[in-house]
């Protein structure tokens, strides 16, 4: 049972910054692993443990050769990482990213691909299913419970009003919701081991992709303008000393809710 987990390294800066020319997020500073990817990593580790063999491989891409975020996931038990690192990737959109990840996954040939439902910085939320379509694989999005038996997935898929039980043969792509499993913390031994685990770096050309398919040229979209929105303003503050609920009631009366 080999599982590829897509992980994204995102800017650690607060507040996030926009590049003045392209209005895209600045990604050349410090990058950390997106916390929402820790659930996919943990799910991968648990499925491999349950299968009694195999490994978790991390798949990631970044315009720079940052690996700090990947080491975090390697420390929790992933066997190795493949990082597609290339300056031509700057400005890539979700589809460009999916083309890169799909090319790596084609090389790896895993039984299962796991990813978060959306990243915390861009939250387009389409990349994993775009990967599935490029590979010609089935996908189950918004999984809140995943089991595998007899080379088939059994997934509880979150819907807007409840959930669906879905079965799906392997290989497949699954996106997991936050909270699907409790991510483990890396042990000291794990942190030490992570330093020597292999991180293979590939360029876009080495993957056999045409650089015009990725980056700004592949994105075929542009930001025309950026403007600040007038923020809501703070209103009245009441410090509760036992009767603050009365002010809530009079407020609701003014609005004719009560």
């Amino acid at each position: 049972m080999n599982v590829a987990v897509c992980v994204k390294q995102i800017p650690d800066s607060e507040p996030p910054a926009l590049d003045p020319q392209h209005h895209t997020l600045v990604r050349d500073g410090k990058l950390v692993m997106d916390e929402s990817d820790s659930f996919g990593v943990e799910m991968g580790l648990q499925l491999v443990e349950a299968a009694g063999g195999g490994e978790v491989v991390l798949v990631s891409m970044a315009p720079c050769g940052e690996t700090r975020g990947l080491r975090t996931a390697l420390a929790t038990g992933a066997a190795k990482a493949i990082l597609v690192s290339d300056p031509v990737l700057a400005g890539s959109d979700a589809l460009g990213t999916a083309k890169v990840l799909a090319a790596v996954i084609r090389r790896l040939g895993p039984d299962l691909v796991l990813a978060g439902t959306e990243s915390t910085d861009g939250y387009t939320g389409t990349t994993p299913v775009q990967v599935a379509e490029l590979l010609g694989w089935p996908s189950v999005s918004f999984a809140r419970h995943v089991e595998i038996s007899h080379r088939a997935l059994r997934v509880k898929r979150q819907t807007e009003t409840g959930y669906e039980e879905v079965t799906c043969p392997l290989p497949a792509v699954v996106t997991v919701t936050a909270g699907v499993v409790e991510p483990r913390y890396p042990s000291f031994k794990g942190l030490a081991a992570a330093k020597s685990k292999p991180v293979e770096e590939l360029t876009v050309v080495e993957l056999g992709l045409d650089p015009s398919q990725v980056g700004f040229s592949g994105a075929r979209q542009q930001v025309i303008s950026v403007r600040a929105v007038k923020a809501r303003e703070a209103g009245e503050i009441v410090v509760d000393a036992g009767e603050a609920h009365e002010r809530v009631i009079s407020f609701l009366e003014q609005l004719k809710i009560l």
Binding site: T126, R157, E160
Partner: peptide
């Protein structure tokens, strides 16, 4: 919606067209 995002993602990859989300 959950299904809407799945359809958009597959359509994007199939047609080789980008998506604008959110």
């Amino acid at each position: 919606t959950h299904d809407g995002r799945d359809i958009a993602a597959r359509l994007s990859a199939r047609l080789d067209l980008p998506v604008l989300a959110n």
